[in-house]
Design a binder for these strands. Structure first.
Length: 862
DNA sequence: GCAAGGTC
């Protein structure tokens, strides 16, 4: 029997499509990467009985990057990134082993049907899948067609079955347009980012951003925020005047009237109107009206609207909201949360999800009534052909979700119920008055039926006092007319919700990437999120955008994306040649880049106003080994040491603190050592600023500290302080932390394993002898007399931390506290945990003896 | 160390 391989874009879709096509009778198993599943069933294909294998990828299989050597920032001129630097496709997520997985599943298959999302990215992934799978599939006989593309516009039985019945071919042009986009984004983004970062970080010390990035989406996103900032700055308040009248409607009730002219900007004119109005004692009713109006129920929920509401009403940032929604989705509480569609497909079962909410304490009454009296048909929305709108799939309580997830779930559910509820109906009545020559009016709203506002109370029509019943010609006594002086007020900073709307409108990013771009400009310290989730640009953000405006405004305008996309669409439609468009657009941006570099002084002038030169930043910390003057420690990101005399900068490990290490010096270069520490619960090690930036030995990499230095005799090196191989990671070595006393620690120089050894020792040294059982270096420990754990009056003991019975009792394995709990080794991560108390694996070279000491030394002295 | 786009 022949086999048909079918591939969807994500595991969830593979499952739903397989379920539909197999009519529910399929057998499923997990693939080798543990993420994608394979669903198998039998059926007919091209008139023969076949076995179907439906599986998926996880988004893009491949990603584009430069060849390795072009990723060395100090060796490559960014201008080379526009053409000379070759690119290569790498696996997007090596952990998923997607190519291998596809080849295992595709081997021996006869046909392939591509079920990737029906957009340009999906079309591109089709070819990534084919590149992986075609070489291992069975060869076609006599020109028989073996590659098919299924095109569907929704995940419904009819649509999926129709797609299967009318298979087409993947569209190479659409895929090429994505290849072009990837290459453009990579080359342009990296060239500008590297140039800006190197240029400004080489001059200023307090930019407080480890990266001065540029990109066709993130830069316009920042541009919107700065545009609003500029409006606020240039705003000049204007004074205006308003007439306000009050009439008596009853003995003790009065009615406030609005002026038809709203406001005037000339005091004397306003005064004139006031004087004329004041002459009248009565207000005459000129007309009355009563109109029934409706407030429409919401459209079904898509991603972008969910993110807007999450930000503006729940105070939840887009990135966080998306993570929360994804968790709700994988736990089965809501449908797929990434969709542009606001229209329920025909035949969508609305009542099913609604019934599940019928006993929920928060909205049981509303839901039961809807089910009993009949639901309303949802409004006609936009069908983007991706996924149905975001819908609750199962009832949940705050207790089981936790308060954050609950608030999002509650909103999604209330929104869903609202879409099948009725419009809110209210009566709008208004009365227009004349007082002397001037016209006034008042309006009031009364609710006829609340409709969906019952489940979305924040949308309800505000309660107002009802208007008096009257008719044309009636008169009321004027109780007061006064003139109010007011001022126009500036707009406020852009809210995140407004920014999302602007991005959507200008086509900056997609529903999935909008949160990423917003997150980016926060992380780069271009904007900060203020109260009410308003985005206030920082000095850095403002200077960058103003600099682009000054040099080449197109770099920051939202059209930078749409203009390129227009070109890409020509490729997709087969109207332009991929190579030509790519070459032409790269050429345009290469010119822009050179012009930008030549004009950078224009942006620099702005930088000078806000930021301090490197030489004037930071405080003196340690001595330079070349000139022996103090270098300054710059704490702001990226933290580094700067020698103003030599005009050299030495970067330091990030996310920790640095202090001087006893004025000790590196024997190789005479630089004073500094002590890096990740905090009291973390680890610390000495570091030579020079060696860390210019590794002395062949087997050392940039950024390493003394705990990874293979110097054979330096008292701070790995060679002298190393004990034995790490108990968890493959390549790490446990190194004595010479500064950790009196609570002595041994820490891995690669991962975050920390072993707490001795609490009451005043001296610990690494002995030259090694353990006969496990090859680890012995520790020579002097305990405090009063608190010695040794028998009798003994205070001195030498032994192996892993094998010595006395030491074993004292060793406790921990993990260095890192900024993110995810990075702490969780339980069950790998076997062999807790081996600190056991024997070391033998047969591996000891840390005390670097493999090739002489060659390491030779490398240094060459 | 960089972009933006998929998705986990």
């Amino acid at each position: 029997m022949k086999t048909v391989l079918m591939v969807a874009e994500k595991p969830s879709l593979a499952q739903s499509i397989a379920k539909i096509l197999s009519r529910g009778s399929m057998s499923s198993h997990k693939g080798l990467n543990g993420t994608c599943s394979v669903h198998e069933y039998t059926g007919t294909f091209a008139g023969q009985a076949v076995r179907f294998k439906m599986t998926s990828v996880c988004g893009h299989v491949m990603t584009l990057d430069f060849l390795g050597k072009y990723n060395k920032w100090d060796k490559v001129d960014p201008a080379e990134l526009f053409s000379q630097a070759p690119t290569e496709k790498k696996e997007a997520n090596p952990k998923l082993n997607m190519v291998k997985f596809l080849q295992v599943e595709g081997r021996g298959c006869d046909y392939i049907v591509l079920w990737l999302d029906c957009d340009k990215e999906g079309e591109n992934i089709c070819f990534e899948v084919l590149d992986a799978v075609l070489p291992v599939m069975n060869q076609a006989h006599g020109g028989e067609k073996t590659v098919f593309r299924a095109r569907f516009s929704s995940i419904t039985d009819t649509d999926i079955c129709n797609a299967m019945a009318r298979l087409g071919e993947p569209d190479h042009n659409e895929a090429l347009s994505v290849d072009a986009r990837q290459e453009l984004d990579l080359r342009i983004g990296c060239a500008f980012t590297r140039f800006q970062t190197k240029y400004f970080q080489g001059k200023y010390g307090n930019l407080d951003s480890s990266l001065i990035s540029f990109g066709p989406c993130q830069t316009p996103t920042l541009g919107f925020c700065v545009e609003r900032h500029d409006k606020i700055q240039s705003f000049k308040p204007e004074t205006y005047w308003v007439l306000q009248a009050k009439v008596n409607t009853d003995k003790d009730r009065s009615l406030l009237l609005d002026w038809d002219r709203v406001r005037v900007f000339d005091r004397e004119i306003a005064q004139m109107f006031l004087n004329m109005t004041k002459l009248e004692k009565e207000a005459q009713v000129e007309a009355t009206s009563r109109k029934e109006k409706a407030k429409q129920r919401p459209l079904a929920l898509n991603t972008v609207e969910m993110l807007r509401v999450a930000s503006s009403s729940l105070g939840m940032g887009p990135q966080h909201a998306m993570q929360t929604a994804e968790r709700l989705y994988t736990q089965g509480y809501i449908s797929y949360p990434r969709t542009e569609t606001t229209h329920y497909p025909e035949n969508f079962d609305l009542k099913g999800p609604l019934r599940q909410q019928a006993n929920h304490p928060a909205w049981a009454d509303t839901v039961k009534r809807l089910l009993a009296e009949g639901i309303n048909r949802p409004r006609k929305g936009h069908d983007a052909g991706d996924h149905p709108p975001i819908t609750p799939m199962r009832s949940a309580t705050e207790a089981e979700l936790g308060s954050e997830a609950w608030r999002l779930y509650e909103y999604i559910t209330r929104h869903f119920i609202a879409t099948v509820s009725y419009d809110c109906k209210y009566l709008q009545s208004s009365i227009s008055f004349r007082i002397g020559p001037e016209h006034f009016c008042c309006t009031g709203k009364t609710v006829i039926s609340p409709g969906f506002t019952e489940i979305m109370p924040w949308q309800s029509v505000p309660l107002e006092e009802s208007l008096p019943t009257c008719q044309r010609g009636d008169t009321f006594a004027v109780s007061e007319v006064k003139m109010l002086e007011k001022q126009t007020s500036p707009p406020d900073y852009l809210t995140e919700a407004e920014l999302i709307t602007l991005m959507e409108k200008h086509g900056i990013g997609t529903d999935a990437s909008i949160p990423v771009h917003i997150n980016n400009i926060c992380q780069r310290n271009y904007v900060v999120v203020e109260s009410g989730r308003r985005l206030k640009p920082t000095n850095l953000g403002i200077v960058l955008v103003h600099g682009y405006y000054k040099i080449d405004a197109e770099l920051v305008l939202p059209t930078i994306r749409s203009a390129v996309e227009k070109q890409l669409n020509l490729i997709a439609q087969g109207k332009a040649d991929y190579r030509q468009v790519l070459g032409h657009t790269l050429d345009v941006f290469k010119r822009k880049f050179h012009y930008f570099v030549d004009s950078i002084a224009g942006m620099d002038e702005l930088m000078e106003v806000s930021f301090s030169p490197l030489a004037a930043t930071g405080k003196p910390l340690s001595r330079c080994g070349k000139c022996h003057r103090f270098m300054k420690y710059i704490q702001a990101k990226p933290s580094r040491l700067h020698c103003s005399h030599c005009d050299e900068t030495y970067t330091l490990p990030q996310n920790g603190t640095i202090k001087l290490y006893k004025e000790l010096r590196c024997p190789l270069d005479d630089f004073e050592l500094v002590l890096w520490s990740s905090g009291s619960r973390g680890k610390s090690y000495p570091l030579c600023p020079y060696c860390s930036n210019h590794p002395p030995f062949r087997d050392m990499k940039k950024g390493m500290g003394c705990n990874e230095c293979t110097h054979p005799t330096c008292q701070h090196s790995l060679s002298m302080l190393g004990i034995g191989q790490c108990v968890e990671c493959e390549s790490g070595v446990l190194v004595l932390d010479p500064t950790s006393g009196p609570k002595w620690k041994v820490a891995c120089n690669k991962c975050n394993v920390v072993a707490h050894c001795f609490e009451n020792a005043h001296r610990v040294r690494v002995s030259a002898d090694t353990c006969s059982a496990c090859e680890a270096a012995l520790l020579d420990v002097d305990f405090n007399k009063a608190k010695s754990p040794l028998p009798g009056d003994e205070t001195q003991h030498t032994g192996c931390v892993f094998c010595d019975p006395i030491f074993q009792e004292l060793v406790e394995l921990k993990h260095a506290a890192s900024c993110h709990p995810m990075h702490r080794g969780g339980p069950g991560r790998r076997q062999g945990r807790g081996r600190a108390r056991g024997r070391r694996p033998t047969g591996k070279p000891s840390a005390r003896r670097p493999k090739d000491k002489m060659s390491a030394l030779a490398a240094y002295f060459v």
